[in-house]
Computed example of a mutant assay.
Amino acid sequence: MKRAYRCSLTFLALLCMIKVCELCSSVKASRATKFVAEGSRLQLSCEVLHCGLPGWTGGWVFQELDRAGFTSLTPSKRIEMSNYTSTANGTHLFLRIHNLNQTDAGAYKCLIYWPDSVTSSGHVTYVNVTAAAVDSPGRSLSHRVLLCLGSLMCFPVVLGFVWCLTRNHRLPPPPVPPRTSFAAGVKPKKELVYAEVTLSDSRRQNDHPKQASEPTVYSSVHFS
């Protein structure tokens, strides 16, 4: 029993050592696909897990589109490579490419060489370089100025339109009730009209020229 127990412990220790060795000689990176506009900047990173062991070398490699095999990247005016040791067990490798063009499209990954002639590579990042934007910074600035001027010119027009709408939609004043007078409700009184009719005889006037005849007055006539 004791011998079997010792064998199991030894086997577990070997597994742990193998696991530690695998972790201490690997590259940690994520597989991704990026679309970057032409003329912009590309930034990639990976982590080398070395557990503080010296003697490892390597860096970034690149494979062009429709071509086989990776080639090592070297620093230049557009290509910038750096590393940063975050912990005692790992180091981050950074890649920055400025002013991208169509020749930068392809696959990128980290390739590390260990002292025991073992190589480790991280996951591949595929980069697609898209066409640059048509609008330049100068045009965008001019467009902004034109938009501001157009907004300022349209502001008085909008104010006038709103004023006209509010003016036309005002409520009309209430109607004035007709004025009634007391005299309009009183019926007019009936007026009395008198007529005087005088009859004269021409023959009698000739017989008695000097005698004036008395006028005959009739009763008044009423009209309703």
Score class of each variant (00 low, 15 high):
R31Y: 01
T33Y: 02
F35Y: 09
V36I: 15
E38M: 05
E38G: 04
G39L: 04
G39M: 03
S40E: 05
L42I: 13
L42A: 04
Q43W: 00
Q43L: 02
Q43A: 00
L44T: 10
S45C: 07
S45I: 05
E47K: 14
E47D: 11
E47F: 09
E47H: 11
V48R: 04
V48K: 00
V48Y: 03
H50L: 05
H50Y: 03
H50W: 04
H50N: 09
C51F: 09
C51A: 14
L53V: 13
P54T: 10
P54A: 10
G55K: 06
G55T: 09
W56F: 13
G58Y: 07
W60C: 05
W60T: 09
V61I: 14
V61Y: 06
V61S: 07
Q63V: 04
L65K: 11
L65E: 14
D66I: 02
A68E: 14
A68Y: 11
A68V: 13
G69F: 09
G69E: 14
G69M: 10
G69L: 12
F70P: 11
S72V: 11
S72I: 07
L73D: 14
L73E: 15
T74F: 09
T74L: 10
P75M: 08
P75C: 07
P75W: 00
P75A: 10
K77N: 15
K77P: 03
R78V: 15
I79R: 01
E80F: 13
E80W: 08
E80S: 14
S82A: 12
Y84L: 07
Y84E: 09
T85I: 02
S86Q: 04
S86K: 06
S86A: 07
T87E: 06
T87L: 04
A88C: 02
N89L: 14
N89V: 14
G90H: 05
T91D: 02
L93A: 00
L93C: 06
F94R: 04
F94M: 01
R96E: 05
R96C: 03
R96V: 05
R96F: 01
I97K: 03
H98F: 02
N99L: 09
L100N: 00
L100I: 04
L100M: 08
A105I: 05
G106T: 07
G106I: 08
A107L: 07
A107G: 02
A107C: 06
K109D: 01
K109Q: 14
C110N: 03
L111H: 13
I112H: 05
I112D: 04
Y113Q: 09
Y113T: 07
W114S: 06
P115M: 00
D116H: 08
S117C: 03
S117I: 03
V118E: 13
V118I: 12
T119R: 10
T119K: 10
S121K: 15
G122R: 06
V124I: 15
Y126T: 15
Y126V: 15
V127R: 06
N128M: 01
V129C: 01
T130Q: 02
T130A: 02
A131N: 13
A132D: 02
A133S: 11
V134N: 06
V134S: 09
D135V: 10
S136K: 13
P137L: 12
P137T: 12
G138V: 05
R139M: 08
R139G: 02
S140K: 07
S140V: 11
L141G: 06
L141P: 02
L141Y: 13
S142K: 11
H143C: 04
H143G: 01
